[in-house]
Design a protein around this nucleic acid. Structure first.
Lengths: 216, 216
DNA sequence: CACTGTGAACGCCTTCACAGCG
DNA sequence: CGCTGTGAAGGCGTTCACAGTG
């Protein structure tokens, strides 16, 4: 029976930052890096990096640092990037189309394998290397190919309904660009990519300089 | 001399969720809401909501709940949405263009007022209601209009350089779609909107079910 | 009476300082 | 000697339970 430990969410959130940065560093031909230097590059305190990595074993060499390629690959495995992650896109509007095209350029571990929309006028259009198919075909497609991830780029009014459908077909992770909070079962993960949220957070800090003031 | 208190970052991160939800609820004609019900809608524990709101005064009525419109507007003011936030977009590639068009449809408090790119072939193109201008014109434009927010949708190689330029012109908040960690002065805020980060986090949880296991 | 506002307890992540090792 | 790995201390957000109030 496997020994299971819960890793802090904040740790997981940082791993992709490390991974992204290590790829760059590797391209520059650097072989060893200390938590100190990596910390500067990703904007994270060195002791945080060491603690984060320590959850997964002894990844570095004392007195030396971390081997860039080794660490990159270790983090990749931890994140599950040694697997292929096919995903679908629902909603072939302007945003959906751009996301699909963008991914084709940058994605390595995540592959767009299907695009679905309700609008008959969209059917057959090529988006991110895929033909847009009618929404009705989505369930069979997802089940057959055992797809776990979906990007959601439909209008707010449709989003919740589509999310239900996705979950029903076995989708376990949703990256949602819809401007609403989706309600899904516990075992389904939703990441909100609606950029208005971030703009509003920015606005707060720009307005208040990180504080609230009152009195005189 | 004003009395200043630091609000937890997690509180600020949740406010836009409340705001987004309250807008929807208001449209449905509901006038009062309890932290209980709101909590279900945004997927946040009721006591967290009450604590969050308590930072900003007594926004609710005991025994009743919160007035939807009043609370929505209060949160709007806290976030700084009573002001107008003009912003620029740098990078008129596919992603940049889609973001700009998308914002035209949904944005209320944030207005795209300029688009810049280095590629001469893009100059003059209409994107999100704005003509694409040469990068060289950006500094004067930003300074003159006193713009504080920029969306960054340029390739990784250019992103850091552009970020420097933006900061130099007085930009204080950057929403970056570039797949690198930007280094900026302390008083400048960067939000990472690179969706590969979220996809990788999803992959982790889908791979490990939120845990790491080893042994047998 | 219902639901907010809030102090106190709790738990968890971060920080710190140093032990452990190449 | 340098930098990682880590237990212990500290800080901070969340949870809890209830006092406060319309």
């Amino acid at each position: 029976m496997p020994f299971r430990i819960k890793i802090p969410r904040s740790t997981i959130d940082r791993l992709p930052l490390y991974y992204r940065c290590l790829n760059l560093i590797e391209e520059h031909g650097i072989e060893e890096i200390s938590s100190q230097v990596l910390g500067v590059r990703v904007g994270v305190d060195p002791s945080v990096i060491r603690k984060d990595l320590a959850w997964f074993g002894e990844l570095g060499k004392r007195g030396v640092g971390y081997n860039v390629t080794y660490l990159k690959e270790a983090i990749g495995r931890i994140l599950g990037l040694d697997k292929e992650w096919p995903f679908i896109l629902v909603g072939a509007g302007k945003l959906g189309m751009a996301l699909a095209e963008h991914n084709r350029k940058y994605g390595r571990h995540f592959h767009l394998v299907g695009v679905f929309d309700r609008d008959p006028e969209k059917f057959g259009l090529m988006v991110g290397g895929q033909q847009v198919s009618p929404m009705e075909e989505m369930p069979a497609f997802v089940k057959e190919k055992d797809i776990k991830i979906a990007m959601l780029a439909v209008p707010a009014e449709e989003a919740q309904k589509v999310a239900h459908e996705l979950v029903k077909c076995g989708i376990k992770g949703i990256l949602s660009y819809a401007p609403i909070t989706l309600s899904v079962p516990e075992d389904v993960l939703v990441y909100n990519a609606d950029y208005n949220l971030d703009l509003q957070r920015l606005a707060y800090y720009l307005s208040n300089d990180g504080n609230i003031s009152w009195g005189e």
